[in-house]
Write a protein that binds this DNA or RNA. Structure first.
Lengths: 136, 136
DNA sequence: GTAGCTGCAAACTCTTTGCAACTCT
DNA sequence: AGAGTTGCAAAGAGTTTGCAGCTAC
């Protein structure tokens, strides 16, 4: 049983066929798929799955903090199975998403919130960039 | 003539009645209104304005970089007339938006992008927090 | 005069929901 | 057995668009 399945069971969710399929897709996705893409991947395994179930499942998982919903500058949401904390750099030319993590940044964010009189609960940081030409 | 009107004219846009009204609303708004809110404010001045025009105008202004479109964690967009560069801290209890600006953060972002092999074109940073209790 | 702009309503995209049937525990 | 889950289709929210008439230049 996968990590995700285990956590869902612990949360008291029934492990139905469609649910398992979607969890498997998420567990095997190293990228940041949209609902539509999760749906496509799930259908490849079990073609009877409906997109309504994908929406419902992703919403549940988001509430359980088992996935993270991203809204990059697009008209739809993308999801990612929760792993270690990190941020994203989106390649403006290819749409590719690069993950990164930076300790100084983490500290700075907390400090900024504190100075404004707030406890930092959550945050978003996305960089949008263009690949640097390397020397010829 | 306002700053926004001037810049629109320079871009070759006609200064029609509805346009002027919307620009005035944006210029006078110190907050981050949604399309719906811009529409309400504009209607208070000229009740014949249609929401389609508000959408069209905000899209144009966004492309001209005269306003910034924000998608905080909500199902709709909010806009803000462009001023100096800054970021936002959103109060999770009240929805209040606090603006801030931090030099160390600016430098750090550029450095991070560079280290990943990218030229930083744009970025988003939002902090979500809860107001700290002050000492009694 | 005419290119650009407008209001209106219809269309579109993404997401949610009511419901009857089904399924895990 | 029964609560939770599903697929379907319809509805909802937010946004865009085609069109005929209007307006700034």
């Amino acid at each position: 049983m996968t990590e995700l399945e285990l956590r869902c069971q612990q949360a008291g969710l029934k492990m139905t066929g469609p649910r398992k399929t979607i969890l498997r897709v998420l567990g095997e996705s190293a990228d940041h798929p949209s609902v539509e893409v999760v749906y496509e991947r799930a259908k490849a395994i079990d073609s009877s799955i409906s997109i309504a179930t994908v929406y419902r499942t992703l919403n549940m998982l988001d509430e359980l903090d088992l996935v993270t919903r991203h809204e990059f500058n697009e008209t739809f949401s993308r999801y990612e199975a929760n792993q270690e904390h990190h941020h994203h750099l989106i390649d403006l030319e290819t749409g590719k998403v690069v993950e990164f993590q930076n300790e100084a940044l983490e500290k700075l964010k907390i400090k900024i919130a504190e100075e404004l009189g707030y406890e930092l609960i959550d945050h978003r940081l996305e960089l949008y960039g263009r690949k640097l030409k390397t020397k010829k």
